[in-house]
Design a protein around this nucleic acid. Structure first.
Length: 470
DNA sequence: CGGATTTGACCGGCGC
DNA sequence: GCGCCGGTCAAATCCG
């Protein structure tokens, strides 16, 4: 057997040439593969270079490993004893030395691996922290706050940047005004950027957005103007709504929260009744939701959430709380022209179609309450729909955006700029990444604005709401 | 029997 | 002031 070195250039991992001359590529090495158990413990290591064929370096190494040994921690005296028994065959001493060398090398690599893992974790943590601070900073650029906070943020950025530099990475705070954050390695190769296409990272990141809201809010407490702004933001937050359009035959999408129906009305302009629910997962939880079928397309269910939860969320709700939190953030931290932007009639009198995901998210503020509409009925090319369509709880989301949804043509109204786009990008990624889509979306929305509390293990009970129009 | 749902009554905001 | 409409209340009813 020929064991090849890792081919870093082609990212092929470990390749092995077997006794028949066939080359195999291994992502993991299985020393205990059945066909190898009784074979010789000799490894032929071929250093595969990019030199012409025939110049490959072959190293024949007797590993000295007892591959039949189940306990890899067999003590050395036993191993030495076994080795000495074999020494009669000759060459044992050399293989013993090689074994020690290999073991040392293995230990060294394990140590290195641990170190790299720790560094990676540290980088991830600091990346998120830094990003939160940057967004907070940017918020202050729009809503000038205290210099103290800016100083703290700058200090934080410097500290993190120093750390990354020491660890072989650097944070590139490029075009901060446009919310670009890029992590590069020493060679300048981008490792992560603000788009954060890796869904686990995005999910993690988005789950922090509630914390960001709190951070932003708490950072605004310094002046009376900020207090006013905070009060206004909270009032708006209370009134802010997130509407989700999803294609579903079910009477209500399961969202991980528990709801109790308290009313039903026939609303004007829609023959389908509108059902009113309140969250019953905690006493006096103020969150309400309305469920109604779309008049134009009865297969589309429109769920509108309002308020913030006053309790921890179940796992299913937490799964996508990040998404709607992002929507709320988008709604409330858009390109406000002033600190009073939320009260600004210009803001409240506009509708904005978000540029990233066409037909996916729309801000509508023409209604009494500012509303973000997430349209999940669209088979958007930007979304890996296969992850959306096959959830056992989720119906297929593939209809085109229904016509009654308000849209603005480009240039009409105020386009949501980068921060909001980033948030929507991330929200979209989070949506697309979550296999339990329906539960995730609804859960997220119910928790929208809200609840950044850590999930404390509340069991997800199936909601027991009734049918709309039953 | 307790909790959830139904459904008509009621309330408040808004426009005319 | 009045009517419309969305939203909520609460008694009656249903259901497990």
């Amino acid at each position: 057997m020929i064991l090849n070195s890792f081919d870093h250039h082609h990212d092929q991992g470990l390749s092995v040439v077997d006794d028949n001359g066939e080359k195999r590529v291994l992502s993991e090495m299985d020393f205990f593969a059945a066909e190898e158990r009784n074979s010789s413990s000799t490894l032929e290591i071929k250093t595969e270079t990019h030199e012409p064929a025939g110049k490959e370096l072959h190293l024949h190494i007797n590993t000295g490993l007892d591959l039949l040994t189940s306990n890899t921690n067999t003590n050395l005296s036993e191993r030495r004893s076994m080795d000495s028994n074999r020494s009669a065959e000759g060459g044992r001493r050399a293989s013993d030395t090689e074994f020690v060398v290999l073991k040392a090398e293995l230990d060294r690599m394990n140590t290195e691996n641990e170190r790299l893992r720790a560094i990676l974790n540290q980088i991830n943590d600091k990346y998120y922290s830094l990003k939160m601070h940057i967004m907070s900073l940017l918020n202050h650029q729009q809503n000038p706050g205290s210099a103290e906070i800016k100083s703290d943020d700058r200090k934080m950025i410097n500290e993190v940047a120093d750390d990354e530099e020491k660890q072989g990475f650097k944070i590139n705070l490029k075009h901060c005004g446009q919310r670009e954050l890029i992590m590069e390695d020493k060679d300048g190769k981008t490792q992560l950027d603000h788009q954060c296409s890796s869904s686990p990272l995005c999910t993690e990141e988005m789950s922090m957005s509630n914390g960001l809201l709190h951070k932003i809010n708490s950072a605004e407490i310094n002046t009376s103007k900020d207090l006013d702004h905070q009060a206004a933001a909270e009032a708006t937050m209370k009134k802010a709504r997130v509407s989700v359009r999803a294609r579903s035959e079910a009477t209500m999408i399961s969202d991980g929260c528990q709801w109790r129906k308290y009313g039903q009305k026939l609303a004007k302009g829609n023959p389908c009744p509108r059902a009113y629910y309140r969250c019953t997962m905690a006493v006096a939880c103020p969150v309400r939701k309305q469920v109604q079928r779309c008049a134009e397309d009865r297969s589309v269910l429109i769920t509108t959430y309002e308020g913030r939860h006053n309790h921890p969320l179940p796992p299913a709700a937490m799964a996508m709380a990040s998404t709607t939190s992002a929507a709320a953030t988008m709604l409330l931290s858009g390109p406000m022209p002033s600190a009073d932007g939320l009260q600004n009639s210009n803001v409240l009198a506009r509708n904005v179609q978000l540029p990233y995901s066409q037909n996916l998210a729309t801000i509508s503020a023409s209604a009494p309450f500012p509303t973000v509409t997430l349209d999940l009925t669209n088979n958007n090319a930007n979304i890996p729909t296969n992850s959306l369509l096959h959830s056992p709880q989720a119906p297929a989301f593939h209809a085109p955006f229904s016509s009654h949804q308000q849209h603005l043509s480009p240039g009409a109204g105020i386009q949501v700029l980068d921060s909001s786009q980033d948030i929507v990008n991330a929200a979209t990624a989070a949506i697309a990444a979550d296999p339990n889509f329906t539960a995730a979306v609804a859960a997220a929305i119910s928790s929208i604005i809200g609840n950044s509390q850590r999930n404390d293990g509340v069991v997800d009970r199936n909601n027991s709401v009734g049918d709309v129009g039953k």
